[in-house]
Design a protein around this nucleic acid. Structure first.
Lengths: 193, 193
DNA sequence: ACTGTAGGCCAACACGTGTTGACTTTCCAG
DNA sequence: CTGGAAAGTCAACACGTGTTGGCCTACAGT
């Protein structure tokens, strides 16, 4: 039977628009956050009718949830010498963000998580399943539990001030200056006095 | 003429409700951010009609602007020994925030500034007129310009993760633990390698 | 007692939102 | 060719929003 051929062809069609919706949604959520993003605008960006968004994703909250399927792609820190851990972390996030801050999932999440409970919950989840384990692998479980919070505070603080708030005093710095300035600070958190 | 007496009495009446509106607005903006705060809700909290809000503040944006008249009450850092600057800063913000995070103006501002241009602009202004000068007084002008950004990133990162996102790994720490962990890191930014 | 005015309320408008259901078009299997 | 399902459009509902203007009420000055 050629049913499989049929299925794939039709499924491909719908999957393509589904992907277009998701891409448009990510861009809007990133630029404006959850509340200010209108489904009509997402649909318009994707070149289809608003009702298609509902057909494929159910409702706005579920669309948001789908847009937040995130992989931070944290580097493997187990091979990094202990005294260069901080540098590796700072550099990784800088590289990630300098590319295109607007569509980086972590910044999308931050922008919405501040006013939206659903996004905040997802943030907790991302932290628990990705950030904490990566640090635990490098520092050992109990040390990581103590320090992962402050490290996150430092890195998210950078993302907040440079890419979301765009504080001039932070955007004025070059990536190199940030790495040189911030890496020792993060290292200070990793190595308790 | 007793006109002055008349004016003060009537003005007092209106000023009292005006203040009530402002108080309610600050609470709502703090808890929900700009977009999710409804004027009807503010009016209801203040025990008056929504149209009174318009009468006294013009529109929502101006109400928001009035709610953001903020004094960070930064401590005078000129007398603090250079090697204790970071500790003084971290402690100050912790004390400020541990009291009642919900109505601290800086957190109000952060919550809205991430999605609202007007709030972001105000944030830049607050930084330029309060944070930067306080650091300049302690570090000297050109050193402050270089490092104020990263110091702010670290302090706002703490506020973000602990009071807005409430990341468990950060809320689990006691204020003392945070001060011990973060002060050396902030000091590392203040003292370049 | 009378009157003007400031303080306040009510009802409504205009608009944007998420969401729904009925209708049309596309397109492929038989 | 043809039927039927998948993909997509259209128009509308129900609701919450910021905002407006007209009306009422209390009270201070004469």
């Amino acid at each position: 039977m050629t049913q499989s051929a049929k299925i794939t062809s039709t499924d491909r069609r719908s999957d393509r628009t589904k992907a277009a919706i998701l891409r448009a949604a990510r861009e809007r959520f990133a630029a404006q956050g959850y509340e200010r993003t209108a489904i009509r605008a997402v649909a318009s960006d994707a070149g289809i009718d608003p009702s298609m968004v509902m057909r494929y994703f159910g409702n706005k909250a579920q669309l948001f949830d789908a847009a937040l399927a995130i992989d931070l792609r944290l580097p493997d820190l187990t091979g990094v010498p202990a005294d260069r851990l901080a540098q590796a972390l700072v550099r990784h996030f800088l590289e990630r963000w300098e590319g295109d801050p607007a569509d980086d999932a972590l910044l999308v999440l931050m922008r919405s998580a501040v006013t939206n409970e659903q996004a905040a919950a997802r943030m907790h989840e991302i932290f628990a399943t990705q950030v904490a384990p990566a640090l635990a692998a490098a520092l050992g479980p109990e040390a990581a539990a103590q320090r992962a919070g402050l490290v996150s505070a430092q890195l998210l603080g950078l993302g907040l001030t440079r890419y979301l708030l765009r504080l001039p005093a932070v955007t004025a710095l070059t990536p190199d200056e940030i790495e040189r300035g911030l890496a020792p600070a993060v290292q200070a958190v990793l190595d308790p006095a």
